[in-house]
């Protein structure tokens, strides 16, 4: 379809890049959701708030403790992940065996509380977080300028996603995780400490969200509402990919980021809705999602 305006190659690649960046965040966030959903059978509505906490954590580490971006990449996921593990132990663990709806309500409530508290203390406007000096600047690829920080975000997210996939699908620890996901009762009867695995899995999924938050801090500003803004799309990504599918969440995350970017080039009016349109179509044709197992 020709839409009456010339599309330059710079525009195309520019939007592709933005799409890949967004896709990096979608992939990291939906991957965490998939890991959590697989093991806990809970749709973690607090995910956006925890992503936001990761970004704030990076901000405070820098301004209160003088720990730079590179430290934040390690410390923020650990801290927010530990907070997640605590939430699981003290609150979510009590819902085990109940209808998954309770988990959804609890995490949704937690998201509102956390976001409300941050808004109360920091206001709705954003706090700036500078790009680390090692990654400032851009390189000329001939057909476009590629900002170094953006290249880093895409490469680093893809590596983390791949490492997570590898750990779950190819290692012994991952086999424990898959076994406990598939049949927790028998896995436990073989001596695996399943409750502890559940806590650590939730903590890990949360740490992925916090990591995404740190990566996002220098791109968008650090704002209490940043999680709520992105999470609706991320849930659509999870539905499209198929609940609980590890590889599905990664591929779908990156792919939908790109689709969104391309839509901005070819039909900008639809760029905010295209993901939801795809979600509706997928739900009609393949309700279990593109990578989900059809029951």
């Amino acid at each position: 379809m020709f839409l009456g305006h010339a599309i330059t190659i710079q525009q195309l690649f520019g939007q592709l890049l933005i799409g890949l960046i967004n896709g990096s965040f979608y992939a990291l966030l939906s991957l965490g959701l998939a890991v959590i959903f697989g093991m806990l059978n809970i749709v973690n509505f607090a995910h956006g708030a925890l992503y936001m906490m990761g970004a704030f954590c990076a901000y405070f580490l820098l301004h209160e403790f003088g720990l730079n971006y590179w430290w934040a990449l390690i410390v923020a996921p650990l801290m927010v992940g530990a907070f997640g593990a605590l939430l699981e132990r003290t609150l979510l663990a009590r819902l085990r065996g109940l209808d998954p709806l309770y988990g959804l309500l609890l995490t949704f409530g937690l998201a509102l509380v956390v976001q409300g508290l941050f808004q109360n203390f920091f206001g709705a406007s954003g706090l700036p977080y500078a790009i680390p000096p090692q990654l400032s600047g851009a390189r000329n690829l001939g057909f476009m300028f590629l900002p170094n920080y953006r290249a880093w975000v895409i490469g680093f997210s893809a590596s983390i996603c791949f490492a997570t996939w590898f750990a779950i699908e190819k290692t012994r620890l991952g086999a424990y995780l898959r076994a406990a996901t598939e049949n927790p009762t028998i896995a436990r009867a073989f001596g695996l400490n399943v409750p502890r695995m559940i806590t650590l899995t939730y903590g890990f999924g949360v740490a992925l969200a916090a990591l995404a938050g740190v990566l996002a801090a220098p791109i968008n500003q650090v704002r209490p509402g940043m999680g709520a803004d992105i999470i609706a799309v991320v849930f659509a990504v999870v539905v499209i990919g198929g609940m609980g599918s590890i590889l599905g969440s990664i591929i779908t995350g990156f792919a939908l980021g790109v689709v969104e970017g391309l839509t901005k080039v070819f039909y900008p009016e639809a760029s905010n809705t295209v993901v939801f349109v795809i979600m509706a179509v997928v739900l009609l044709i393949r309700p279990a999602g593109l990578f989900g197992k059809v029951a």
């Binding site: 898959r178 076994a179 598939e182 009762t185 028998i186 009867a189 073989f190 001596g191 695996l192």
Partner: peptide, 24 residues
């Protein structure tokens, strides 16, 4: 004791439904 602690004392079960993990 919880079942994981019982297992670690040296009790092993081969369940009626066999419970082979399909994802492994």
């Amino acid at each position: 004791l919880s079942s994981d602690r019982v297992a670690r004392l040296g009790v092993a079960i081969c369940p009626e439904e066999r419970a082979i993990f399909a994802s492994l």
